[in-house]
């Protein structure tokens, strides 16, 4: 029996879908059976971030409406053994699925998979309620900005009200150069303000844009972000992994001239 993990944030644009894609890919690379569920009905994006947009036949709404079997709607990622996507519908809206139906789908999936990862839409309305309905634990994604952290706090409150015990934090798009000169909150600052435990810190890395352009998540590759994601996957699996030094390595000339 697997576990259902919801990835959510409150605020849009902080990197939920990218985080979901990379955690899914990373866990699959570590040998786990993983299914990623896009719960953002009407605004699906997990398919393009994963590079699976051309292979969608059925979606989660088809499953709950009985147009297909759950297995038929799952897209197997041929690049990573054990990774599947259950896409959202693009031409419907959030009310097409109820929280009870989504919880039922998640329950069925966790019999087959080690991890069922629900990619939540932004906001706190129906789509969010669907995403958290069947979840055993939560991962909150935030960036070190006041707006994103404030929304994350609201989400933490809502998850607590839903009696979710295990909620952890990913601080995304951290810029160590700005933290060092005092112009960005550090991951420690964000943790102090929100009062929940960290599960990962992901640096602001150009390679993420490149990876999304190509539809190829970078978890586990040699980039700093890729390393940060694979570490998150190890921590999800309950392993203790030290946090990376995210400071960019300065080249010889940059050191000489004091440039970043």
């Amino acid at each position: 029996m697997g576990e259902v993990i919801v990835i959510t944030s409150g605020k849009g644009g902080v990197g939920k879908t990218t985080t979901t894609a990379n955690i899914g890919t990373g866990l699959a690379k570590l040998g786990k059976k993983v299914v990623l569920v896009d719960t953002d009905i009407g605004l699906r994006n997990l398919d393009v971030v994963l590079g699976l947009e051309n292979r969608i036949v059925y979606n989660v709404v088809d499953v709950v409406e009985g147009n297909c079997k759950l297995k038929q709607a799952l897209i197997k990622d041929k690049r990573y053994e054990g990774l599947c996507l259950l896409p959202a519908a693009q031409t419907r809206d959030k009310s097409a699925v109820t929280p009870e139906q989504m919880a039922e789908v998640a329950k069925e999936l966790k019999e087959e998979f080690d991890y069922v990862i629900m990619d939540s839409p932004a906001g706190i309305e129906q789509g969010f309620k669907n995403a958290i309905a069947g979840a055993d634990r939560g991962i909150i994604v935030t960036t070190p900005e006041v707006s994103a952290v404030r929304d994350a706090d609201r989400i933490i409150g809502l998850l607590e009200a839903n009696e979710m015990q295990d909620v952890r934090l990913v601080v995304n798009r951290l810029r160590t150069d700005m933290v060092e000169r005092g112009d960005m909150m550090s991951a420690e600052d964000v943790v102090e303000v929100l009062g929940i435990k960290l599960i990962g810190v992901v640096p602001d890395d150009e390679q993420i844009v490149v990876a999304t352009n190509n539809g190829e998540p970078l978890a586990g590759d040699e980039s700093l972000a890729g390393q940060a994601y694979i570490n998150i996957c190890h921590r999800i699996m309950g392993e203790e992994v030290p946090y990376l030094d995210l400071r960019k390595k300065k080249g010889f000339f940059a050191k000489l001239f004091g440039k970043n």
Binding site: P144, V146, R150, D153, V179, G182, D183, M184, D189, V193
Partner: peptide, 20 residues
């Protein structure tokens, strides 16, 4: 103060009223 500290202080204040 650095803008990072300002951000943290402002957040702490706004969260107190949000949470209350």
């Amino acid at each position: 103060k650095s803008s990072g500290e300002t951000a943290k202080d402002r957040l702490k204040l706004v969260l107190v009223s949000d949470r209350s």
